[in-house]
């Protein structure tokens, strides 16, 4: 459950999940929605995959991400989005360490 809280603590990742609630999307389509570099987006995807909140399907060179959230996890996402909860984790955010100081 710690991975889930960590994944939901970041507004970009929450927005990725909100987009995936509408339909499965490719990594490129998702990256186009955000003003961040591809390595940053990849790091965000990695956190979401580690938390088992999304699922990746690779077809050729295209990776399609699908939502993989239980009802409870979706409710947590809704609460954190509605009330702006900043669910912090003591170890900090891996994305912040792996990228060069941009949105994380």
């Amino acid at each position: 459950m710690g991975n889930v809280f960590k994944a939901l603590s970041d507004p970009t990742r929450r927005q990725v999940l909100q987009l995936l609630k509408q339909r499965p999307m490719t990594a490129g389509d998702l990256a186009d929605q955000f003003d961040v570099t591809k390595p940053t987006m990849s790091a965000h995807f990695a956190v979401l995959l580690a938390a088992d909140l999304i699922q990746a399907e690779k077809q050729g060179r295209t990776i399609t991400y699908r939502l993989k959230m239980s009802v409870l996890e979706e409710a947590l996402l809704g609460f954190s989005a509605a009330f702006g909860l900043q669910l912090t984790n003591p170890g900090g955010d891996d994305v912040a360490r792996t990228t060069t100081g941009e949105d994380a």
Binding site: R23, R66, L67, M69, S70, V71
Partner: peptide, 29 residues
């Protein structure tokens, strides 16, 4: 609670992925 997370595509890919995902979420909720 686990339905939307673990129930695989039950229409065998014969359905629009967005509609199928929406159905799974509806059933789970």
């Amino acid at each position: 609670n686990a339905v939307p997370k673990y129930l695989g595509p039950f229409l065998g890919g014969r359905c629009d992925p967005a509609a199928e995902q929406a159905l799974r979420r509806f059933v789970g909720w």
